[in-house]
Each structure stands twice: as structure tokens, then as C-alpha cells.
């Protein structure tokens, strides 16, 4: 059987959903693979929702909003853009292809463009093949990565930074200093890196207690780095020592504190 991707589309009500309607009114056909979920604004698209959609086995996620400047809510699409940017950074750290996620702008009069984009995205996903998370036996390792990414996206630190990003670039920080895009991007990357790894650690030790050495093998990271994360996580009350086996302390996840 040929591979028919299952794609979830998150569309804003005012432009892109209207564009999709216009494709219908104009009878422009496109592949049947997309399932559209209507939101009021692309700015509503949460990284957590997209990551959960991928974890649920969607082969692709297509987010669409109004063109820049056209947003019905003035600037919602700008926030969507920033969130997708963070999402892509998170995905890049998992083994799931970043190409399974795409953000596009479609206006209410671009029925043709909408159909073209769907067609193109379906091709893109066909080239990638079925999601390793689809079907009854999702790839455990990749799933762990995506779930860690999701947990990172839920994390206060990351969300706070993303939320402050635009204000800090446009209006400056509390010292009245404007922070450059590059600088913030660098900080963001660091936070994403650490949060992603820590959440992977957390999810791994949640399954069963593991040592630093075992964690470093599973994560393909040097044990010194893993230990640093373990120390921070322990101090934050995310994990604790379960028992010591031989010379290795085994860590386990705590429910409290999260």
C-alpha cells in the first residue's frame, strides 16, 4: 500500500482558514491527507500542542496564519513565527525530522496558494516517509526525544524567555538595553539545549532508576555533562538518588517539584 501521510493543519480563522475555504469555493483540488483544526489565531499555536500532535503519530504538522502585517489580532502571527522557530530548535534536538513541521502564511484570497502548499507539504512528507511515531509500534527512542522536547516546551524557563523575547528585542530589557536577536538566539539555544537534555534525563529515570554512566550512554553525552545536569536536577527536587549499586548511585524521578 502506498504511504498516505496523515497531516494535521492548525489554521487561523481569519486568513488561512478562509483561504482554505476559497480553495473549496474555487474547486481547486489537493490531496486528502490534511485534517484541519480551526483556531482563532496562529498565535494560539502552542509548541506543546504541536509536539503532542507529532507524538501522537501525525506524519506532519502544517501551521498557517495571516501574512505578516495582515493579522486580525495585529501581531499574533509574529508570535506564531517565534514559537515555530523555538519548536524547530527543539525538534532539531530529537531524532524526528524538522521537516515534519512547516509554517506558512495564506491570505483569504489565496485559495490556489493554499492548495499548492498542501500539495507541496504532502510531497515533502512523502519523501520523509511515515513518522516513526505513527502506528502501533512507535520508535521508543524518538518518542522519548519528542516527549522530552514537549516537556521542555512546557518548562517555565523556556516559555518565559520566549514570552519576553519580542519585548526585549523591541523595547529593551530592565536596564533599558536593547538585546540583539543574535544574542537572544544564543541564550535561547542554550536554554533549549539544557532543558531538552534535562527532560530526557527526567523521562529516562522516570521509567527506571539509572546511573550517570548509563544515562550518558543512552543520551550519547559525556558523563561529566550528564552529571552537571543531574546535580542541578537533584537540587531542584526533580530527581533523587534511588539507591547505590556498587559504586554508582542510581537516580529516579520525583513527581513533586514539577
Amino acid at each position: 500500500m502506498t504511504f498516505e501521510p496523515r497531516i494535521v493543519g492548525f489554521l487561523c480563522n481569519w486568513c488561512s482558514y478562509a483561504g482554505a475555504d476559497l480553495a473549496g469555493v474555487s474547486r481547486i483540488s489537493y490531496p486528502t491527507n490534511i485534517r484541519i483544526i480551526r483556531l482563532m489565531c496562529s498565535g494560539r499555536v502552542e509548541p506543546v500542542i504541536v509536539l503532542e500532535t507529532l507524538a501522537q503519530g501525525a506524519d506532519g504538522v502544517l501551521v498557517m496564519g495571516c501574512h505578516i502585517g495582515d493579522c486580525h489580532y495585529i501581531s499574533g502571527n509574529l508570535y506564531a513565527e517565534r514559537k515555530i522557530n523555538v519548536l524547530k530548535k527543539l525538534l532539531a534536538r530529537t531524532s524526528l525530522e524538522v521537516g515534519r513541521l512547516r509554517l506558512e502564511w495564506v491570505s483569504a484570497s489565496e485559495g490556489g496558494r493554499f492548495a499548492e502548499l498542501v500539495k507541496d507539504f504532502v510531497e515533502q512528507i512523502k519523501a520523509l516517509g511515515p513518522s516513526p511515531l505513527a502506528g502501533d509500534k512507535p520508535d521508543k527512542n524518538i518518542l522519548a526525544g519528542v516527549l522530552a522536547a514537549k516537556a521542555a516546551a512546557e518548562d517555565f524557563r523556556l516559555r518565559l524567555l520566549v514570552g519576553r523575547e519580542k519585548t526585549m528585542i523591541d523595547d529593551g530589557n530592565v536596564y533599558g538595553e536593547k538585546v540583539s536577536e543574535e544574542e537572544l538566539d544564543k541564550i535561547l539555544n542554550e536554554v533549549i539545549d539544557t532543558e531538552f537534555v534535562r527532560n530526557r534525563i527526567y523521562l529516562l529515570v522516570k521509567e527506571k532508576p539509572l546511573s550517570v554512566k548509563e544515562l550518558s550512554e543512552r543520551l550519547d553525552l559525556d558523563s561529566k555533562t550528564v552529571l552537571r545536569h543531574v546535580v542541578v536536577m537533584r537540587r531542584r527536587g526533580l530527581i533523587t538518588v534511588d539507591r547505590v549499586e556498587g559504586t554508582s548511585p542510581l537516580y529516579t524521578a520525583l513527581e513533586v517539584g514539577r
Binding site: 482563532m40 498565535g43 494560539r44 499574533g76 508570535y79 514570552g163
Partner: peptide, 20 residues
């Protein structure tokens, strides 16, 4: 529009009728 909710660091804001 839901921009506040999808950006809330603690998940304290929900968008009624379009909740997570």
C-alpha cells in the same frame, strides 16, 4: 486570540472554547 495563553510560562491562562 489566545496569544497570552500560548505564551504563559506557567500554563495559568487558558483560552476558553479553544483550550489545550
Amino acid at each position: 486570540c489566545g496569544v497570552c495563553g500560548s505564551s504563559c510560562p506557567t500554563g495559568a491562562i487558558s483560552m476558553l472554547h479553544f483550550t489545550d
